[in-house]
């Protein structure tokens, strides 16, 4: 048995499996309009629409809210799980999931709040002597 041959076979098989699995697992960044036509998991970045309904349903363990993407498309989002940390103060949120019957069924929500972690000039002005 030749060692390098075995090595080569393992590597090729692995790379092939890895490549297909990778293609299968990658999630594209899209907007809500495109998300309707893609029937696999996607990511959409946008803002929480604060004045529309948002509530947690403890029966189904889902958190429902409305989100507006960067192109101003609005969509109702149902997150499988509770309200994410820092949800209220997030500058932007990223939802991962798919569209089903006009609603975005999210499996994960990332909240981005750089502004809170970065101090502003406004804040130091108010910090007094």
């Amino acid at each position: 048995m030749n060692k390098s041959l075995i090595g080569a076979i393992i590597i090729i098989v692995f790379l092939a499996i890895g490549f297909f699995s990778f293609m299968d697992s990658k999630i594209e960044y899209v907007n809500f309009a495109d998300a309707r036509d893609i029937h696999k998991k996607v990511e959409v970045k946008g803002q929480w629409v604060k004045d529309k309904e948002s509530n947690f349903d403890s029966g189904t363990n889902t958190f429902t809210f409305w989100m507006k993407d960067d192109y101003n498309n609005e969509m109702k989002v149902i997150l499988d799980g509770g309200k994410p940390n820092n949800f209220e103060v997030a500058d932007a949120i990223v939802v991962k999931g798919k569209v089903k019957d006009g609603t975005f069924m999210a499996s994960e929500v990332l909240t981005k709040c750089p502004s809170k972690y970065e101090a502003t000039g406004e804040e130091i002005k108010n910090s007094g002597y």
Binding site: I17, G18, S21, F22, D24, S25, K26, I27, E28, Y29, K41, E43, K96
Partner: peptide, 17 residues
């Protein structure tokens, strides 16, 4: 992947592989 293309990879990919 996120720095090459706009998007990310599902966590499950790491587990599966």
């Amino acid at each position: 992947w996120p720095i090459i293309a706009s998007g990310s990879i599902e966590q499950d990919f790491y587990n599966k592989m």
